[in-house]
Nucleic acid binder design. Structure first.
Length: 575
DNA sequence: GCCGTTTTCGGCCCGACTGTTTTCAGTCG
């Protein structure tokens, strides 16, 4: 039973309790605990064995006992009792928009509905509108929502899809007359790896005009709601978008509010209350009814005696305390990155020549790049033989001569960790390279013991400087390998091996949570694009976002170091 | 059910929008 499984049990418990009509704070407690376990960097088993379950925020005595029962027996009596009372299938019904716990409970009790299919059938038969408090419109909305749910396929989309889509909408919004500023908020602004919808905030004194222009954008499929200051639409590609319009003098509180996370906002509001202030997206209200307006986000935090907190940290993971202590990290920025340690050329499966990749990198201001084409056994990616690897070295030297001081070119390899744990090149070949990245691409479904041993063994090789996309996950498509992350991070810290944050939005591997844990263990990170084409360098933003979510400063990121420091580091590592 | 620069008990964030309403419940973020 992994973290996700445990989290899913508590999240389902929360939904079932809510349908049952339990006290909302009890429901929220289970939901919060579920989310905390889901975003835990380390295996919940490790905390369990160490008797540290209650250190998880939102986990107290009752829930830690339930985790214990789950991990010991694989079952939870509390859940089974609940599932006997309320059909667990109803949890699925909650995914339909416009259907919350109250309606789900009524549909079940009054119409016997326990699945989305049954709900759809009842709606088509006009049975929903016969319930008191329901009408034709509500029934129609629910039918629309079921269709929308089917169109979406998944609940959350990759940030690699969401971010460009948001930039396009923002560009268009900024052209609308009367718009002072427009930004994305929500989980996108916090750089979460997937987002449920886009939240856009506009500063304007003419909200209704902005609203009207927005719902008439050509890519809008349907308008889910439209009011004076708020609109909700769905795009043709299934993405849902919320727009808030606020006057400039309230823009800061609106942006802060919409950025979340919910847990962070709850903490802020508690803090506000303790100072006799009530905080909403419109600003602060004192008990006498007077207001404090916040044009900028920093005004919101200042009113609470806090420094501005970067959006990536707003997850209620200690950022308020760090703000009070003055110990907020100076987070790594895109401009801090000085080079690219992991990229491919057409010598293996890249789509561009050495010179094209080098030129593009130099144009972006990078000081160095490391050609790290695949090694010989990865046939599907045209991995280099030892002879080809040596030929490539001469080719790189020729390009270097041509580019001169514009950029420093290094040669590395993304060397396969074979299924039996050996590396794909012998040590004497690895010793010829400037930087060696060891990666898993095959046999990712091995048992935890075997696949963990492969990575540990690779890190014991003195030539290995870095591990590429450590868990091998593809978000939404392939699960991470079943690694003992505790052992992996411990070994990386001990051996001084850098761990990659692969910036490709399909990977983001290490994840934010693992990267944070890695830093706490004293590991060094590297933000790599794994570029196969010059356009891929643009993916750096996703890696930077993930590193920032891990509380990483530039000091902790290998490719944010100056080149001479990197070279000294490599030299010191050489056996 | 959790939690403590108010607290080990008594709180726990707040508002917009919609639909079916005679004053508000439900959903959403």
């Amino acid at each position: 039973m992994n973290n996700r499984d445990v989290a899913a049990v508590f999240e389902t418990v929360a939904d079932l309790l809510e349908i049952k009509g339990e006290a909302i704070y009890r429901v929220l407690a289970y939901r919060r605990a579920g989310e905390a376990i889901r975003s835990l960097g380390q295996d919940v088993h490790v905390l369990w064995e160490g008797g540290k379950l209650e250190e998880i925020p939102g986990v107290g005595k009752a829930i830690s006992e339930k985790i214990d029962e789950l991990l010991r027996t694989g079952k939870l009596g509390f859940y089974e009792k609940l599932a006997a009372e309320i059909p667990p299938g109803l949890v699925e019904v909650l995914r339909v928009g416009d259907v919350g716990p109250k309606r789900a409970a009524r549909f079940w009790k009054e119409l016997g509905i326990t699945t989305i299919e049954e709900l759809e059938e009842a709606a088509r038969d006009g049975k929903l509108q016969q319930l008191s408090g329901m009408g034709q419109k509500s029934e129609g909305r629910i039918l629309d929502s079921i269709e929308a749910l089917r169109r979406r396929k998944t609940d959350r989309v990759s940030i690699g899809v969401a971010w460009p889509a948001a930039q396009e909408l923002l560009r268009r919004l900024r052209e609308v007359e009367g718009v002072h500023a427009a930004e994305s908020a929500g989980s996108l602004r916090r750089w979460r790896e997937t987002v449920g919808d886009l939240d856009l905030i506009v500063s304007s004194t003419r909200p209704s005009a902005v609203m009207q222009a927005f719902v008439e954008f050509p890519e809008v499929e349907r308008v889910r709601g439209q009011g004076e200051t708020k609109a909700s639409i769905e795009l043709r590609n299934g993405l849902r978008v919320q727009l808030w319009v606020h006057p400039p003098e309230r823009y800061g509180s609106a942006l802060q509010y919409a950025t979340g996370s919910q847990a962070h906002n709850v903490r802020l509001r508690e803090l506000a209350l303790s100072k006799g202030l009530s905080l909403s997206e419109h600003g602060f209200k004192r008990s006498d009814g007077s207001e404090i307006l916040c044009a900028g986000e920093e005004d919101v935090y200042r009113a609470l005696d806090l420094p501005w907190i970067p959006p990536e940290l707003r997850e209620d993971r200690g950022e308020l305390q760090a703000g009070r202590d003055g110990s907020l990290p100076d987070l790594v920025k895109l401009e801090d990155l000085r080079g690219e340690p992991h990229l491919h050329s057409d010598w293996s499966d890249g789509k561009a020549t050495l010179e094209e990749m080098a030129g593009a990198a130099a144009d972006l201001g990078m000081r160095y790049i490391v050609f790290s084409d695949h090694s010989r056994s990865l046939g599907v990616a045209s991995g280099l033989s030892i002879d080809r690897l040596r030929e490539q070295r001469a080719a790189i030297a020729a390009v270097q001569a041509k580019l001169g001081k514009r950029i420093k070119l290094l040669q590395g390899s993304e060397v396969e960790i074979l299924a039996d744990g050996r590396l794909d090149f012998p040590d004497e070949v690895l010793a010829e390279l400037d930087l060696v990245i060891a990666s898993l691409h095959t046999s990712l479904r091995q048992s935890s013991d075997r696949i963990t041993a492969r990575l540990l063994g690779a890190m014991d090789n003195p030539h290995v400087d870095m591990i590429g996309h450590p868990t091998g996950r593809l978000i939404g498509r392939r699960e991470a390998a079943d690694l003992d992350m505790d052992a992996i991070l411990g070994k990386a810290a001990e051996r001084g091996v850098a761990l990659e944050i692969n910036a490709n939005p399909e990977r983001l591997d290490l994840s934010d949570a693992h990267a944070k844990l890695a830093l706490e263990r004293g590991c060094v990170l590297s933000i790599n694009t794994d570029a196969h084409h010059p356009d891929d360098f643009a993916l750096r933003i996703y890696g930077v976002g993930t590193a920032r979510r891990a509380w990483a400063s530039a000091e902790m990121v290998l490719n944010a170091w100056p080149l001479d420091r990197l070279l000294r580091w490599l030299e010191k590592r050489a056996p």
